[in-house]
Design a protein around this nucleic acid. Structure first.
Length: 456
RNA sequence: GAGGUUGUAGCUCAGCAGGUUAGAGCAUCGGAUUGUGGUUCCGAAGGCCGCGGGUUCGAACCCCGUCUUCCUCCCCA
């Protein structure tokens, strides 16, 4: 009985070529992090549910993939909770583990758990898949890779500057035609709420502001009215919709707007500090932009907020991050400041695919393919193949004695550069024939010395 | 989680208001060419028409459910 092959929604298979392309992105990212002194770590694919639950807000909890208890443990199911419609409790009784939802929370757990083995400031990067029970859409998958870099144990703004440089270096190296690194600061958002007398509704305010580029000014106003904001408050926010001009111009506008808010001014100061560092040490390709509507969903950011958008393509952000002053506080260690970014490798992949940015020579076949004429000659070829491998080249011996036509077709499809003929005829004459697949030219060499004259 | 949309050969798609053995191109395999690939020509194989139920003399086509696809919202990488 055969079954129709299928994979779950939101997941993908990767063919050899796809993996090579993705590895190019990964290696570009890890190279950049390495150059800035970040070190790699890994954490398990799944964590205890208690580590993850409640860290991403109500929405986030819903999107966490939970792992069903196995075997006899299912008997622990809390049927009373089910009967009384307490679904979260019922779910907890069925599941003690969950697939990781991002790399930041597991990293916080990691830092607390290994605090005595790490030296601070600790700079790490991590490239691993994460899982979200989200509804798949363009550029959204249920399984995707995140590439995170964080610095914990240092509140210097130089870390923010450094992370922005990493982003710039990675995306420039990958030859993205252009991208904007949007910057904001949670303190500025708090300041805005403060001067508008809306401090207690900060979240609603920022969530609505965040949608400005999507639903427009009227949409934001409608949303705020829907959340019960007073007209006077909405009016006081309106000037922000018109924010235009250079980074400096926006800073000076906001300095006036936020002059009565101490925290808001602190945020502005941080933003202009970061911006000033790129004056004499400019970015390669990235464009810095101050965007007060940038909020991002995660509510643990306390300082800088970063988001990167690629030009020339419609796609959500390809990189995001920010500073969180108390992430490890959730795991019992207070006052450890951190700042980090997260690349969305799969979105970068999709962008590079649509803009055709992947180099064409990624898929390289064997340098030499030895045709298989008979057991005896193939044995000799296997010995030669090892010599070729010792030169750091790729060599393959065709495994069976099928028709030459078939073997050459294989060589052609696999992109072999050279094909070596060594059959009975050649053996008797003491020669080998090397054929260059692209030009079709053939050269004859003495069998005992072909390797030294071959230019492969 | 809410609403809409899609599903026919490995891939991209045809299939006339429900009517005999469901079609094409590309890909695959074989042959033309028993020691020479990419081109060409000939041929073959490949489908519970997403899955389950219903309506009908009769369903790829109509109805219901379910899964999947893509999209909008929500949220995010």
């Amino acid at each position: 009985m055969s079954q129709k092959p299928a994979i779950p929604k939101g997941t993908r298979d990767f063919l050899p070529e796809d993996v090579l392309k993705r590895n190019l992105i990964f290696s570009t990212i890890s190279t950049a992090f390495n150059r800035f002194g970040f070190q790699p770590i890994e954490t398990p694919s799944f964590e205890l549910s208690s580590t993850l639950m409640g860290k991403y807000g109500e929405e986030g909890d819903r999107l966490i993939f939970r792992i069903l208890n196995s075997g006899e443990k299912v008997r622990k199911a809390d049927l009373e909770a089910l009967a009384s419609d307490n679904l979260p409790r019922f779910a907890n009784s069925l599941s003690e583990k969950a697939l990781r939802y991002d790399l930041t929370v597991p990293f916080a757990r990691f830092v607390v758990q290994h605090q005595h083995e790490l030296s601070f400031p600790f700079k790490r990067y991590q490239i691993q898949p994460v899982w979200r029970a989200d509804r798949p859409q363009h550029g959204r998958y249920q399984e995707f890779y995140q590439c995170d870099g964080d610095v914990v144990g240092s509140d210097s703004l130089r870390n923010e500057v450094e992370l922005i440089q990493v982003i710039d270096q990675v995306l420039s190296t990958l030859k993205l035609p252009g991208f904007t690194i949007k910057l904001n600061n949670r303190k500025v958002l708090s300041g805005i709420a403060e001067v508008c007398n809306a401090s207690e509704h900060l979240i609603h305010l920022t969530v609505a502001l965040d949608k400005l580029d999507k639903i427009g000014e009227d949409g934001v106003i409608n949303e705020l009215m829907g959340k019960g904001f007073e007209a006077s408050v909405i009016d006081s926010i309106k000037p922000l919709f018109q924010l235009k001009g250079s980074f400096e111009e926006r800073i000076s506008f906001l300095s006036a707007f936020l002059s009565k808010s101490e925290i808001g001014m602190k945020g502005l100061e941080e933003l202009s500090y970061i911006h000033s560092k790129f004056r004499d040490n400019p970015l390669v390709k990235g464009q810095l932009e101050l965007d007060v509507t940038l909020a991002r969903g995660l509510n643990y950011y306390t300082g800088a907020i970063i988001e990167v958008k690629a030009h020339e393509v419609v796609m959500g952000s390809i990189c995001g991050g920010g500073r969180y002053d108390d992430l490890t506080g959730l795991f019992g260690v207070k006052g450890l400041s951190g700042v980090g970014i997260s690349f969305g490798a799969d979105r970068i992949y999709d962008i590079m695919e649509t803009l055709e940015l992947f180099p064409s020579d990624l898929r390289s076949g064997p340098d030499v393919l030895f045709l298989n004429f008979s057991e005896t000659e193939a044995d000799q070829c296997a010995i030669w193949a090892n010599s070729v491998r010792d030169l750091g080249k790729v060599a393959e011996v065709y495994p069976s004695q099928t028709k030459l036509q078939k073997q050459l077709k294989y060589a052609n499809e696999k992109g072999a550069k050279w094909v070596l003929f060594y059959g009975e005829e050649e053996r008797q004459k003491g020669i080998v024939i090397l054929k260059h697949m692209e030009s079709g030219e053939q050269h004859t060499y003495p069998a005992d010395a072909w390797l030294s004259s071959w230019e492969g």
